[in-house]
Nucleic acid binder design. Sequence first.
DNA 1: CTGTGACTTGCAGTCCGTG
DNA 2: CCACGGACTGCAAGTCACA
Lengths: 69, 69
Amino acid sequence: MTLREVLAENLKRHRLAAGLSQEELAHRADIDRTYVSSLERCQYAATVDVIEKLARELKIDASLLLQQP
Amino acid sequence: MTLREVLAENLKRHRLAAGLSQEELAHRADIDRTYVSSLERCQYAATVDVIEKLARELKIDASLLLQQP
DNA sequence: CTGTGACTTGCAGTCCGTG
DNA sequence: CCACGGACTGCAAGTCACA
């Protein structure tokens, strides 16, 4: 289980819990829709800057996105 | 307080707690010596791949490196 | 609404050195 | 042991069309 996969799962779970689509979250976090899609499919190793934007819009602590199940 | 700064502080604190120098940690995590120094000075936005390597050698959960004080 | 391939660009990350 | 610099490479970052 890589950290990319952990991030992907946590991102999707918290996004759905917030009732947001990939598009809505992307728009609010000011990043591209397809990039959020890429992250949820483990295509890239996100930087802390992106994690910060996502966590802010999901209204959660950034560390929750990297938390192992 | 940016997430880069949070990472920088947590990295330094956990590194010292493990009794490792920047050089030793870098060598064990198989990343560049000067890059660990750069991260502790908030020069770059680290990727989750690097965070994973660092956390593994520090024997802590990756989420602890992004945890807000 | 989301997955995907193709593409360009800026920065993450490396390697050499210095005081 | 660490901060800091320059130069380099590869990938994250960001955009688009299409299914």
